[in-house]
Design a protein around this nucleic acid. Structure first.
Lengths: 212, 212
DNA sequence: GTCTATATCTCGATAGAC
DNA sequence: GTCTATCGAGATATAGAC
């Protein structure tokens, strides 16, 4: 569990509380819309403590965003377990990735917010990660290409395919309020809906990639 | 082109300029993050004029959001043309819906912002539309069900399927800054990438729904 | 480290000249 | 209708006692 890439591993309890509260508030209200008072309330501390531990709002945001970004990039690798067939690999990935997002919807919202705002901070992080060699979905693209070469699936553009898998695993969380109104059961039983969705996504994509 | 459901049809040039500018800024910064000064700058007018034409920030937002929401709900029906086979219907829908979003990415961003923020205003609109009978994707769900009953596609949950189609058509716009960095060609030639994507999505989903 | 009080600034909104 | 100047609320940030 101790993770050297985790900046929050060196955090005190108070810092963790602030960090978690900030993530929630930034994710809902956005970088500029978020109020320091709301963060203080959510962390159950005084507003002055925010400035004691993190210099100012911009610093706090960058800390939260940077950490969330790294977790999101790592999530691809963590969701992609070794499996004997592509079929099983896909199933495990969809399960793992959906569970990752479900376990921290605020993190997902923060990433989407940054994309909507133009993604300049995000672009810097991504380009740096790319130069370090470990581009996030590279590992996924390789898996698709290998399956394609082994005739386990039909020939497809692996980049487009990865984007489609990620889209379907993420978007229903992005649009959760809409889905809860429109879908017949999602509003009453979100957890059950997510389970059904994992099964549906596996079927749709696996059939969509099957050799003809 | 004159559309009675279009509140902006009665707008003067100045009002249109404000409305368009407000949409862009609200879409990027969110309801609370948006600054009246930014909107005035984008509309190339004085800040005081905003309050002259639209009473206050909340009024302006509701005007912009309401109009955008109606356009978005109508877009499903507009993208779904009559066609002899489900295969063609799917192709035309993907083309039409992607083009709709491409023609006004700010509108899409505004919808997503509202979802991320909790979607209370959005929920009201949706529930009202639902009670009026014309729930937006109902028409799409029906199409899938009919195709399934006619054995044109395998048996699937039509609600899940519609959500998957919409996810894949929308999400790459949501995450555009990320996609432009990660995808090998999207950054240099976005238009070309969108064309490729329409083809990929049709193939993936059509194969994914084919009878086994 | 924690809290209160307060300084400083930004933003939405208005008053009033033209 | 348009613009400048400004008010007042509310937000960030800091000073300083404990």
């Amino acid at each position: 569990m101790s993770n050297s890439a985790d900046p929050s591993s060196a955090y005190s309890d108070t810092e963790r509380a602030i960090f978690d509260a900030a993530l929630q508030v930034f994710a809902r209200e956005g970088r500029h819309g978020a109020r320091m008072q709301s963060i203080a309330d959510a962390a159950d501390i005084n507003k002055a403590m925010l400035h004691y531990y993190f210099r100012d709002k911009a610093t706090l945001y960058e800390e939260v965003f940077g950490y969330t970004m790294r977790r999101f990039m790592a999530s691809f690798g963590e969701s992609l377990k070794e499996a004997p067939t592509f079929k099983e690999t896909l199933r495990v990935f969809i399960d793992g990735y959906v569970e990752f997002v479900r376990s921290d919807e605020a993190a997902m919202r923060l990433m989407v917010q940054e994309n909507l705002a133009g993604g300049h901070l995000l672009g810097d992080h991504l380009r740096r990660a790319k130069k370090r060699g470990g581009a996030p979905p590279k590992i996924l693209v390789d898996t698709i290409e290998a399956a394609s070469a082994a005739d386990e699936i039909r020939p497809v553009d692996p980049h487009q395919t990865v984007l489609s898998v990620v889209s379907t695993c993420l978007f229903f969380f992005v649009a959760r309020p809409t889905v809860e109104v429109m879908h017949p059961t999602a509003g009453d039983d979100w957890e059950g809906f997510v389970e059904d969705r994992k099964e549906h996504l596996f079927e749709l994509i696996y059939c969509g990639l099957a050799p003809r």
